[in-house]
Amino acid sequence: MFESLEAVLAGAPAERERTPVRRNSRAAGRCEGVFWRRTDRQEVRRIVLAARRYELASKEHGARNGPLGGVAIELLELFANLVDFRTGRLDPSIETLMRHLRRSRDAIVRALKALRSHGFLDWLRRYVPTGNEGRGPQVQQTSNAYRLSLPARARQFLGRFGINPPLPDDHVQAEAERAAEMEAHKASLPMDELALFEVGDNPLGQALAHLGRSLKLRESAKRTESQSSFIKDREE
C-alpha cells in the first residue's frame, strides 16, 4: 500500500524553506508502482504517430507550428526510445533531454508542458535523500517519473492503426490487477492529494486540492470541538 504524501514527507526537515523540493513531490521509489505501466513498441509508435497527425491537423492556416510544436514531437520520439517496455519506467533528467535533443532548458520545459496539456504525457515530481547530516536539507529534487499516453482526441487520427489487437489472457489479468491496485491507492489518498492525482498538477488540480485541504481542516476542527464538548459534559 502506498503512503500518502504527508507520511512520505514525515521524515523531511521541519524547516520547509530550507528543503529545495517542489510542492507535491513524492519519494522516488515509492510512488511509481501504480503510475508506470507496461507497454510495447507498437503502442509507443501509435502515440508518436497520433501526436504527429494531431499536430498537423490542429495547426492553424499560416502558422508555423501546431498546438504541440516541433520540439514536443522530437521529445516524444526520444521518450519512445528511452521507455522501458517491460516496466514502463521513464525518468530521464532535464539535462539528459537537453543533451539528446540539443535544445535549451526553456524549450524542453515548454515542450513537456505542451505534451501534458494535450494528454500525451503525464509525470510525477520526485525527491531523494541527500545523505547530508546535520541541519542542512535532507532531501533534494530528482528527475520526474514520466508516462506516455494516447488521448482520445488524437486516437481518431490513427484510423485502423488506432485499433488495438486482442490482448492475451495474462495481459488482461495483469491489467485488472493493476487497476485494482490503482483504485486501492486512490482510496488511500486524502481529498487534496486525490484531486492532484486525478486532475494533475495544474491550476484546476491545485484549486481542487486547496478545497480538499480546507474541507479536511474543517472536519478536523469539528472533531476537536465535538471531543471537547464531550469531555466538558462528562466533567459537569
Rank of each mutant, 00 (worst) to 15 (best):
I163Y: 07
I163S: 12
I163P: 02
N164V: 13
P165V: 06
P166D: 08
L167I: 06
L167E: 14
P168T: 06
D170H: 11
D170C: 02
D170R: 10
H171C: 03
V172S: 06
A176K: 14
A176V: 13
A176C: 10
A176E: 12
E177I: 11
R178A: 15
R178F: 11
R178I: 09
A180E: 13
E181H: 12
E181C: 11
M182Y: 09
M182I: 08
M182L: 15
E183F: 09
E183P: 05
E183G: 02
A184R: 07
A184F: 00
H185T: 04
H185G: 06
H185F: 14
K186P: 01
A187V: 03
A187T: 08
S188I: 02
S188A: 15
L189W: 05
M191C: 00
M191W: 03
M191H: 01
D192M: 00
E193C: 09
A195E: 04
A195F: 04
L196D: 00
L196N: 00
F197P: 01
E198V: 10
V199E: 01
G200S: 01
D201M: 08
D201E: 12
D201L: 14
P203N: 01
L204Y: 09
G205H: 04
G205W: 04
G205V: 02
Q206S: 05
L208V: 09
A209P: 09
A209V: 10
H210D: 12
H210P: 00
L211I: 04
L211R: 06
G212I: 06
R213F: 02
R213M: 03
L215V: 13
L215E: 12
K216I: 06
K216T: 15
L217G: 09
R218P: 00
R218W: 12
E219P: 05
E219R: 15
S220F: 01
S220R: 10
S220D: 11
A221K: 14
A221P: 01
A221M: 15
K222Y: 13
R223D: 09
T224K: 10
T224S: 06
T224D: 04
T224Y: 02
E225F: 08
S226D: 14
S226Q: 14
S226V: 07
S228M: 05
S229A: 15
F230K: 09
F230E: 11
F230L: 13
I231A: 04
D233C: 00
D233A: 07
D233F: 03
R234P: 00
E235R: 11
